[in-house]
Design a protein around this nucleic acid. Structure first.
Lengths: 223, 223, 223, 223
DNA sequence: TATGAATGAGTCTTCATTCAT
DNA sequence: CATGAATGAAGACTCATTCAT
């Protein structure tokens, strides 16, 4: 049994990776300590040697993934000056993390589960989402400042739209990975989004619409 | 004790409504039979009189909400010939169900939870999502057929983008109802989305409204 | 299995009685829920139906015994005007509860265990002990007020001595019930105690400490 | 980590001292091997190097304290010829060990816990208590033989009363060290006790020293 | 219809103990 | 001497479910 585990490789790491896997698929409550331990070729006792709690394991896992994701986003985008490219990059990283690993799925799954079920974790996720939207908002604002993006859009709302569209696409994908084409959906969205943000061709009349004015107003309040 | 429950109104209905409430907030597994029964002013035994199973209750609840939602969408939109208006209407109904009741939240919550946890329920939700996207796809196609929407967009992908954006916005809202402005986000998205659908294929000159209408007309003739 | 339990008799009562028995002998921590349940011919689940917690069972048991004991003490002594007789009665009731049931042993055992182990229970016991000493103190004071007991003794200290002597005797008895003669010990103590409290024969000089010391000294010489 | 431990001083001794501390406060079962080890700045493994067992540690600790206590009692009293003084000395040593260290508390705590929980330890304590009472009994008998104490009291019962009174006082003190005045209680008791032993048999006229000696002598003859 | 009592399987957690290094 | 890693048994507690009344 213990032979199944890899050499000297930290049992702790194994445990966490397996936990992440399970949390991504089944959520927190439906993942039993026993399942994780067994999958790691260990006993429950061993798990409790490495983690104080089921919750400690959860937090370790979440923190690991969260920081990985955020570091990756930040790293990949530090060198990208063009806002549109930056947004495309963010989308690409999300797509990557959603399809090639269970990073994003774990986050999404736990986030939904935690809302009214685990206040502490919920707070963590709320903060994370906030950071993510702030990050996007700043990119949008940069574009607006440089005149590349139109200024009559609330950057915060844009960030919310972006965040939601990615996450919603992911969920559809997790639900039906064989049928749902996540890449196509995200690509379509991102182009649509950038197109929307991009200023109209100079000279052409600004396409006003009643509701835009409203948007404008709400934005003013929030700023 | 039972006096607290409302009038003659079927205990069954009470039970289901409460179950929906709990499922929406805590999900299926974290909602105990006892919690529902107690909230309904009954004992567990009574619940088992009305429902064979915890799962039976779940399915009853889900089916009720699902059919309500779908009926509402279909009903409200049967009379809407204009595709753009129809899309706006769909968004409005979603917004409504997300903010004024727990209809949508229950669906989203259970959907995420069920994916790898309850195959039967997952199938149900997959089918529901499929129907919803098909429904949207047809609206988009109608728009494309009428020349109102550009034809170089895959209607299916558009439906996926739409579905995801709404759902992703909702989740952000459920996570942080006091801070997140769901209405603004959905409104912004829907306009962006319709704008995207209405825009000319990239490369072609951006058409003015008047031209578009003309185009539209000539397109209809040629089809 | 369930046949072993008595007819309709509240399972709850059975459970508590058995719990009291076990707590008296093994203390709280060493008494497993399972042992109690099995001894009652039930399963753990049944126990948890009747008591929220192991602690709830503990408190129910303690409260029951405590109030029984205190009620008995108060009842038996309401009609006893003579302080000396009252004290003898208290001792008799303690002896009774210590030898004919496990009332007192449970209290003593849990009290010692709880001190630094269960703050809430410890507080309960502290309060109980306090009440008991106050009760004794008042009896002593009554005797002092009536001139039956000498006034140069601190009533509070007398209560402490009394309480300790009874409890200490009990513990020796619990430790070695076959050898230790609890009745004799308690009787001897109570007579000694009352003798001590009783005022010296009228006319004879009150044996003050100073005199005693003198006595002592002269005594040593003569031996 | 191990640097925190004092100098060269045998880890074994440290371990035992800490164990005694914990046993005194929490008893045997509630004291985990881990707690002791950590408090000693070691790991569980090290503890198992020094002691075969948790029980081995327990017995080592108990034996150490017991022999210390008994040695001290015997040592301090070897040179005390006067029985009353000897009794006062015993009480003083108990008071000392109860207030200035956890010697006595450990004994009392474990004794109560062990009764029906650890037969071997219980036997040890039974024997210890027996020895202690025998020791006291001999002192009382010495007093009776010398005519200093009245002869109509069973020396064994007197020993039991004494032992119980001290122990009962201690427990009240352990339970409530800030409020309970152990010194006063023990002092009051010991004076009362000696007074009792020294008093004439009830009914007979209070005998003067001379008479008592005579009584004593005649009594010896008749027995 | 509904209740109260009970079951039993499953889950989290603790802890004494072992052992290779 | 000592540690770090791990085990396995036992214990507390939860919960869906059953059933006589």
């Amino acid at each position: 049994m213990s032979a199944e585990r890899v050499a000297r490789g930290d049992a702790r790491r194994d445990l966490m990776d397996i936990a992440i896997d399970c949390f991504a698929r089944y959520g927190f409550q439906a993942t039993s300590i026993d399942r994780i331990a067994k999958a790691a070729g260990l006993t429950k006792g061993a798990l409790y040697y490495h983690f104080k709690d089921k919750e400690a394991l959860l937090f370790a896992a979440v923190t690991k993934r969260l920081s990985q994701f955020e570091r990756r986003v930040v790293t990949d985008l530090a060198a990208v000056p063009d806002p549109a490219t930056a947004l495309r990059e963010v989308a690409r990283v999300c797509l990557d993390h959603a399809t090639k690993s269970n990073h994003r799925r774990m986050i999404v799954t736990l986030m939904v589960e935690a809302i009214d079920t685990n206040p502490r974790l919920a707070a963590e996720f709320r903060a994370m989402m906030h950071r993510f939207r702030m990050f996007l908002k700043r990119i949008v604002q940069r574009g607006q400042d440089s005149g590349q993006f139109r200024a009559d859009i609330a950057a915060g709302v844009a960030a919310e739209v972006f965040t939601g569209a990615i996450m919603g696409a992911e969920i559809q994908y997790y639900q039906d990975p064989r049928t749902f084409n996540l890449a196509a959906t995200i690509t379509a969205f991102i182009e649509q989004f950038i197109n929307w943000l991009s200023a109209p061709a100079p000279g052409s009349p600004r396409p006003l619409r009643a509701h835009r004015a409203a948007e404008q107003r709400s934005r003013r309040k929030s700023s």
